[in-house]
Computed example of a mutant assay.
Amino acid sequence: MVVGEIPIDVDVAVLGGGWAGTAAALAAAGRGKQVVLVDAHGPGGRSFQEIYGPLRALQAAVEPAWRLRAPPFTALHREPFQLDWTTLRGWVQASVQEQVRRLADQMEEAGVEWVHGRGSFAGERELRVESEHGLLRYHFERAVIATGARPDASALRAGKFLTPTDLLALETLPERLAIQGGDELSLELAVLCAKLGVQVTLHMPPGQTLLPGWELDAQEMLRDGLAGLDVTVVAGPPDETDAPTVITGPLAPAIDALGLDAVNVHTDPAGFIRVD
């Protein structure tokens, strides 16, 4: 028998192994459903393994060290307290891999079938997966699309740009860094890099405030906190001479090559899935 010749019947097929896809898969399995989860990046998906996992681990490591720079802890060390980025990156990678392993164990215990590969719809209730074991076919009753989004490359002007993934994977941190955007991820990266000794400038889109939609008092407290870290907040995009620049948005849906037409799912002009 050729792999993929006979389809496998499942109740729920989940495309995307990030937080949303993982939560959906575990919830369905907890209700006794037979679930397959497909992702090309392994447990946690790309967003956790490359962005939020490393970011949370770095925050957990940097915050205690940052407190040692302030009184009364300054009496405990003579030289300016610094973290070794190379050693820190190694610890972060090990921490993320441990969390990925635990997540894989959790899904196995819940009975979720994890498939490392890329899936696309081939019919109204058929999913084809190009996996490490060859082509697999699944017949499903329900499907969940949770493939997330990524920075829209078409929106980036010429210059040296980094995605959050690129920044967290650097072997050496830059002395200066420009971050474009005022959303939660931009602010978390700005605070983290400032505490690691990077001179950070946060560039806000014209007319946009920090954390749009938040109360004004909270925004003012945030500005004061950034000023205390020597983070400069300016309006407008970075100059051509600013380097490098981290872009956290705008985001484009990661739905290319999913075969959405086969399941009668359509997108709007911006590329987002239409919902009823």
Rank of each mutant, 00 (worst) to 15 (best):
Y52C: 06
E79S: 10
E5H: 15
A75S: 10
D224T: 11
M1N: 06
G90F: 01
W91S: 09
G42L: 08
G236K: 12
A143L: 00
A153W: 13
R89K: 11
Y138N: 02
E171W: 01
E50C: 09
G134P: 10
W214G: 02
T87L: 15
E175D: 06
E132G: 07
M107F: 14
W114Y: 14
G259V: 07
S154R: 10
H139A: 06
E220T: 08
R89E: 04
G259S: 03
L76G: 01
E184P: 11
L185M: 08
A235P: 07
G17I: 08
W66K: 04
A122K: 13
A252I: 09
V115R: 13
D224C: 07
Q97M: 12
R223I: 03
L37Y: 01
D84C: 06
P7A: 07
A146S: 09
G16P: 05
R128I: 12
L177E: 00
L167R: 14
R274G: 04
R46W: 11
G249H: 08
G207C: 10
S47R: 05
F161H: 15
E184G: 01
I8N: 10
L83N: 02
R67F: 03
A65M: 10
P269R: 12
G117L: 01
A252H: 04
D84A: 05
A25V: 00
A158W: 09
L177W: 11
V263H: 02
I273M: 13
V275P: 07
L258I: 01
P43W: 06
C193Q: 13
H41Q: 12
V112E: 00
R89Q: 15
T245L: 12
L173S: 03
